[in-house]
Design a protein around this nucleic acid. Structure first.
Lengths: 246, 246
DNA sequence: GCAGGCAGCGTTGTATACGATTTCGCCTTG
DNA sequence: CAAGGCGAAATCGTATACAACGCTGCCTGC
């Protein structure tokens, strides 16, 4: 049930009042597609034709275009002129930059979250951890990956810094694509043990500890990526098919 | 002549290839309006009617809407459903967050820029400083303010971190609006002396120095703001007119 | 004389039609 | 039989028409 709000990426823009996305319907489509991407249901390079999406949601292309443009701004969709929209395929270079940005921003937010955390926030975080564990236990991979990203967004919100929280939301979204492409381990995607320790530090109002826990956590995520290999699918079929042709 | 590229906020999104904004014309309008905002020619709360803008650039509302939505994603335009688009009026709260974000991100970028700066970059920075001084000498306030923001974007680019550079571009844009609203001093907006020192540190490849110079510079900017007073115009006419009525 | 409602106007929200561009299959030709 | 070009289909890009909504000013009724 927390899922609905996970992809609500528009509040970040609204200074304080609820401006929302221009059109409620465009917002809904945006949310649906974003969630699907975060859940690894829509892999990189998937084509997103305006007509097809419009037919799916009974919306005109005008609405769909607006949603796709929003996804482009979020960094999870690439638009090629006269060709269409695709789920982005982050390059290794981009992947590294995204994680470097996270290592810079998120520890600082974690520290701030620790300083100003309220009992209600702790409850929210604990509940979230429970949901994560439940998803893992149920081997619901889609939901697990969605929640593990949402955890980071949640902390950014607890830190009560809307501007940086917006950045984190974007970075987390892009990270999801990156993990889908470059992850090499079999383990749980974002081992909730790390999240556990983080909540512990937050609860103890230990800013330093929260920051370093967050930093180590992100470093570990980055180290789980295989950014050297050109990874597997479709970076350029030539790379794969040439040996067969020769 | 460097102006043209200052507002080119789309490259930030393109992973490495030149995806650009969907429509060249929408991009042009986006650039024009953004530049006008950065130059303080379009003050906060200015209405931006689709028809009027379309007439100005001989573009249909479809194009204009796309440009306005992009400006909304940039954080410099607010869209109120069924009412229209306005130049954003950042709240004091938002202003503080923007500068806190900058104090977190930009010093780190400055340090990295110092490490990897090339002679060509130094030339670019020196040229930019000269332009800033020229604008100040000519008392061309509009251009001076534009260039002083562009300087920060330039450093982010030298640091060669596209992701963070995109964030900085947004933060700098929003800062421009904030400064227009809350600046209280008469001095030069972004005293180019600070920029001078920064370039010095960069040239010396002094990462630490560059970072601390950047931090102090932004702190100084923030301290030049008057975020307590509700500032002057139009926050709510009631505040101003009530004494007359009573 | 004042308050409430109603109507007209202006602006935005959405759908759709048409033109432009790319893509892919097919046909022609060497 | 292979290669190149041509044409149709599909899809995107843009303009425009119409509907919906909010605002303002007037008008009526109390």
């Amino acid at each position: 049930m927390a899922i609905a709000e996970i992809a609500g990426s528009s509040e970040a823009r609204s200074g304080g009042a609820g401006t929302r996305l221009r059109s409620a319907r465009a917002q809904a489509i945006h949310r649906e597609i974003l969630t699907a991407i975060l859940e690894h249901k829509l892999p990189s390079s998937t084509r997103l034709p305006e007509d097809e999406i419009g037919a799916l949601y009974n919306a005109s292309r005008t609405i769909v275009r607006s949603a796709l443009e929003a996804l482009w701004h979020d960094g999870v969709v690439t638009i090629e002129p006269h060709r269409g929209a695709f789920v982005s395929r982050p390059t290794p270079r981009e992947a590294e930059e995204v994680f470097q940005a996270r290592m810079l921003i998120e520890p600082s937010l974690a520290a701030r979250a620790a300083e100003r955390i309220a009992p209600a926030d702790i409850a929210r975080l604990r509940l979230h951890l429970a949901e994560e564990e439940a998803a893992n236990a149920a081997e619901d991979r889609h939901r697990a990956i969605l929640l593990s990203g949402a955890f980071h967004t949640l902390i950014a919100e607890v830190a009560d810094q809307a501007v940086l929280a917006g950045f984190v939301r974007e970075l987390v979204s892009r990270s999801s694509l990156i993990v889908a492409l470059y992850w090499r381990r079999r383990e749980v995607t974002c081992d909730s043990h790390a999240h556990d320790r983080l909540v512990g530090a937050l609860e103890a109002r230990d800013g330093e500890g929260a920051a370093s826990a967050m930093l180590r956590h992100i470093e570990e995520l980055l180290s789980g990526l295989d950014l050297d290999a050109e990874s597997r699918p479709a970076p350029a079929l030539a790379e794969i098919l040439r040996p067969v042709a020769g």
